[in-house]
């Protein structure tokens, strides 16, 4: 039986992280069962605050999205410029994750 895998990329500073780990781009990882973005990040030791959103098969998703075997994944740190942040749907997906607290740090501090 063919092995079940996911194809994983990391952008911006996470690319450096891939390089340091000597991972190929893309990294092909065995994955038998569905897993959340958080769990996958943990498995790869990518800190959650380094991820604003993930791409799953070309669509922007939140970190709690369930990743299936066979998916194409990319981890995106906070730092995507342009109105594409809105147009690609970042603002609907980044609200509850830790990276967004980086983006809104100042506001949080002011309120806190």
């Amino acid at each position: 039986m063919e092995k079940k895998t996911v194809e994983i990329r990391g952008f911006m500073q996470l690319r450096e992280y891939f390089r340091r780990k000597n991972w190929p781009v893309p990294l092909i990882l065995d994955l038998e069962e569905a897993i959340s973005g958080y769990e996958l990040a943990e498995k790869l030791e990518i800190p959650a605050e380094e991820v604003e959103v993930i791409f799953v098969n070309g669509f922007v998703q939140a970190l709690d999205y369930r990743i299936q075997p066979g998916d194409r994944i990319a981890f995106l740190p906070p730092g995507c410029p342009g109105p594409y942040r809105i147009a690609l749907g970042f603002y609907g997906k980044n609200q509850d994750n830790q990276a967004n607290f980086l983006i809104h740090k100042k506001k949080e501090n002011e309120q806190g």
Partner: peptide, 9 residues
């Protein structure tokens, strides 16, 4: 920086 992001999208 947008090459990889738009490509992925």
């Amino acid at each position: 920086v947008l090459v990889n992001i738009l490509n992925e999208a």
